[in-house]
Design a protein around this nucleic acid. Structure first.
Lengths: 170, 170
DNA sequence: ATATTAGGTTCTATTTTAGAACTCATTATC
DNA sequence: GATAATGAGTTCTAAAATAGAACCTAATAT
């Protein structure tokens, strides 16, 4: 299977990997959220090769996550800014940063934090259900194949499941 | 910069990319959450080469996200199961799946969904603050460098920011 | 005796990535 | 006026990762 094929996969997570499933793309987005907008800014802060950076910026622009706009003429220069679609990636960054701090600890402190815009306090991200407010994690949610109302059916079968079940409870 | 260096970066997001920043690792985890446990199960469902799959499973085990345990002897066979650390990745999957469905739409429906274990209803994931319950997104949070109480300081400066600010507000 | 299943390993060929050097237009400095 | 610096790339070669297929081993099934 090729890289490119992921972009058209029916699975949203596969498409997400087609979009940000490489070493640099997500880190470029991180820099965008930190306010970096220019080619050399990304390059110096990330240490990515100029070649790859140019390619990744093009791809992010093609995906509609960044827009390239002139910030001066003579010589013409462009900067890269998050689009609405790019900004919508923030919750993923929050969830991932929180996970990494828990599960991939480091002795050095994180070089940045997320704070609320109104109080300035550091946030403590948790994924919840929009309607019930319930916290969502492996104890409260289950991933089920979407075949024919599978959710309810599988759920109904859960109390009497066989020992080698594959419902993802473990 | 090399692949390996990311694993020791001070930035949690960089370490996360060292861990799952390739095409396959996150999809292998997805299969784990769907209940797949065996080598050939992963291989057939993902279409990943056996070579890479073996390497990725080893890496996930080394990271402590999967554990390899025998499920039969003669011939000895092992299966891979999510550890507590692996299970803690669920919220990232939720956030990422939600983002991808919004921002990388497909005409085909997703092959799986997340449902709550108690009601079986499909969930609607949203990242919130554990303490205030506030929804966290680009409008409500700001990413700030962690230098010397930067959060409060930067926040205090926000009302009078210059036009070409780099605080990540756009 | 032969085929199948399960879980890999080994091989070559292709694709990606790293790293450095080069380009081009403009502005700043000696 | 010549030289250097800035900013945003592009072009090269070498190294690394990935794809794809074939092979291996141990046991069971036909």
């Amino acid at each position: 299977m090729k890289w490119h094929d992921l972009n058209n996969d029916t699975c949203p997570l596969a498409r997400a990997m087609g979009a940000v499933g490489d070493r640099w793309t997500l880190l470029i987005l991180r820099e965008c959220f930190l306010g970096v907008r220019r080619f050399d800014g990304f390059q110096k802060r990330l240490g990515v090769t100029r070649h790859l950076l140019a390619e990744r910026l093009k791809r992010l622009e093609a995906m509609g996550m960044l827009e390239r706009r002139p910030y001066q003429e003579r010589p013409l220069r462009h900067e890269y800014r998050l689009t609405a679609s790019g900004k919508s990636f923030a919750p993923v960054l929050l969830a991932m940063q929180d996970w990494a701090q828990q599960s991939l600890p480091s002795d050095a402190p994180a070089p940045f934090t997320f704070v609320t815009r109104d109080s300035g306090d550091e946030v403590c991200p948790v994924v919840t259900d929009r309607h019930t407010g319930q916290e969502l994690n492996h104890r409260t949610v289950l991933m089920v194949p979407a075949t024919a109302a599978a959710a309810k059916v599988i759920e109904a079968n859960r109390p009497a499941q066989p020992p080698d079940t594959k419902t993802g409870s473990d």
